[in-house]
Design a protein around this nucleic acid. Structure first.
Length: 357
DNA sequence: AATGCGGGGCT
DNA sequence: AGCCCAGCATT
């Protein structure tokens, strides 16, 4: 199948099957940019409500550049990969300060911005500026590996380069934005990881994996490393005014800029209440008594999983001061909603708020 | 080239 | 329980 036929078939299919998305048809490169950052490693359905809310809070790149990081992280709360939000915020300031508020139009310029890599640079320039740069995301990797019969390990960077070259060769220079989106949509809706709907694929005629009955083994991805599991103990420290103590995670740490209940990993030969008491001594320089468990929960992060035990604590001796965290704060239960928390801690705040009522 | 970085939905 | 998702930054 020639490139022109591939593109014609693909774009015709796309015209009839494309899903509605709030950023589709959007001409403002800032909004395209925001959508693409949110869509990194994130499904359309999960990102959509966040996009609506984010744009209503920060309608222009100036609004975003002027915002506090805490506002930006609050808007990102629950979406994950929070470095995306911090980098997007940084990049918005760069665009305002160094590009006069205009998103740079060239691939080589836009990729210099924090949080914009090869995928996002190609996506924004092709969709917003009609530049013939091919995107390679998880969908495109799957579609092109099958179409060209590439059986190499998709985890290796050599394979990524090969797929990028194929995509650059294949892209329709007349309709780069639609071509890119159509290829991703095809991967999402037809050329799915399991049980691809090959009978309804617009480019099935040229697909090697279909011809060889290898759609179930292509793309090949080498096995992932097993994730470790940790037991975590955290303390809910209350004072006489009914406030609880929360801590701000350091900027450079995982979940940087988000708030949490202080705590840490259980050690061998230690009960979980002892863990809480030891961790709070190390992190806040105080002596506490962990006297009652609030709840426990399981949570999976990107590279490890935890079982978290949350214990109510009484302050026995000392005044809390931030040691490992950037800042600490006493807040009323109903004020917890103002602060950005990662998921596992968010569950705890909701439990505290509900128990109060 | 390899690793760290969230959370949710599907299998 | 594991896999995947409109990946990027850092080492």
């Amino acid at each position: 199948m020639q490139n022109a036929d591939f593109s014609r078939n693909l774009l015709q299919w796309y015209q009839h099957h494309k899903r509605e998305m709030p950023w589709r048809g959007e001409l403002d490169p800032y909004k395209i940019w925001v959508s693409e950052i949110m869509l990194q490693q994130t499904r359309v359905d999960q990102a959509t409500p966040y996009f609506q809310n984010f744009i209503s809070l920060f309608p222009t790149v100036y609004d975003l550049a002027d915002a506090d990081q805490q506002q930006v992280l609050k808007a990102w709360e629950g979406l994950g990969y929070y470095s995306r939000a911090r980098n997007l915020h940084t990049a918005a300031k760069t665009v305002v300060e160094e590009y006069n508020g205009k998103v740079p139009e060239s691939y080589d310029e836009i990729i210099k911005l924090k949080g914009i890599g090869p995928y996002t640079a190609a996506a924004v320039t092709s969709i917003a500026f009609n530049a013939p740069n091919a995107v390679v995301d998880g969908n495109v990797i799957r579609v092109l590996c099958r179409y060209f019969g590439i059986e190499d390990d998709t985890r290796s960077s050599k394979t990524s380069r090969m797929i990028q070259e194929e995509a650059d060769e294949l892209i329709d220079p007349e309709h780069p934005g639609d071509f890119n989106q159509a290829l991703m949509e095809l991967g999402s809706e037809v050329c799915t990881p399991t049980n691809p709907d090959c009978e309804n694929c617009p480019v099935q005629a040229g697909c090697i994996a279909t011809k060889m009955s290898k759609t179930e083994v292509i793309p090949y991805k080498s096995p992932a490393k097993k994730k470790p599991h940790h037991i975590i103990g955290v303390g809910i420290v209350e004072n006489e005014e009914g406030q609880v103590l929360i801590a701000l995670r350091p900027e450079e740490a995982m979940l940087g800029g988000l708030w949490e209940f202080p705590g840490g990993k259980q050690k061998e030969d230690e009960t979980i209440s002892e863990t809480v008491e030891r961790e709070l001594h190390e992190e806040l320089g105080v002596e506490v008594k962990a006297y009652k468990e609030l709840m426990s929960l399981k949570h999976a992060y990107s590279h490890f999983s935890i079982t978290m035990h949350a214990w109510f604590c009484k302050l026995v001796n000392g005044t809390p001061s931030p040691k490992e965290s950037q800042e600490i704060k006493w807040v009323k239960t109903e004020e917890l909603e103002r602060y950005p928390f990662p998921k596992a801690n968010k569950v705890l705040t909701e439990r505290l708020i509900n128990d109060k009522n």
